[in-house]
């Protein structure tokens, strides 16, 4: 039960974006850089929000951008983007968003365990604010409970 790795390429700290689409695109680019997805995956993550609304803002300040498994997913992957200026996604309670987690999975059944670990990290109610202020990738990984040795 391990999280997919969170290499430096999958972390963007203090991104400047114009709107929620820009925020999701940052997460999409990070997933491409880390080798998890192809660039079309960002379009599919945006399409999910266009179709179903801002439900991906699952906690105050936190959006979990994701789409279904597909041919544009090369490997299960996670990306974390913190925003220099929070942006609204259109959620009635949880806007504005300061942290976007991008998630790509290749198989709907297999990802539940890794998401459970992500849920463990985020069950700490102060964590979104702390992640938003993280200054280094290592600091952010430590907050999310990533074991550096497990990534090597």
């Amino acid at each position: 039960m391990t999280l997919p790795p969170l290499p430096d390429e999958a972390i963007v700290l203090g991104a400047h974006v114009d709107d929620w689409r820009g925020a999701v695109r940052e997460a999409g680019r990070a997933l491409v850089r880390s080798g998890s997805t192809r660039s079309e995956y960002a379009d599919r993550m945006i399409a999910v929000i266009e179709e179903f609304g801002a439900y991906v803002v699952i906690a105050p300040g936190l959006a979990l951008a994701h789409a279904r498994p597909g041919p544009d997913v090369r490997a299960e992957g996670l990306a974390v983007v913190t925003l220099a200026e929070p942006v609204p996604f259109g959620h009635p309670h949880n806007d504005p968003v300061r942290v976007v987690v991008g998630l790509a999975v290749s198989n709907a059944e297999e990802h539940v365990a890794s998401v459970a670990r992500l849920a463990n990290a985020f069950n700490d109610s102060g964590i979104v604010g702390r992640i938003a202020k993280a200054e280094t990738a290592d600091e952010l990984r430590a907050m999310l409970g990533f074991d550096r040795e497990a990534e090597a």
Binding site: F52, V56, A67, H111, V115, A116, A119
Partner: peptide, 18 residues
């Protein structure tokens, strides 16, 4: 339930079990 059946619904499932 979530839009695409992965990610958010999985988190909801885990926390509902808790």
């Amino acid at each position: 339930v979530c839009g695409v059946g992965i990610g958010t619904s999985a988190i909801l499932k885990v926390n509902a079990e808790r």
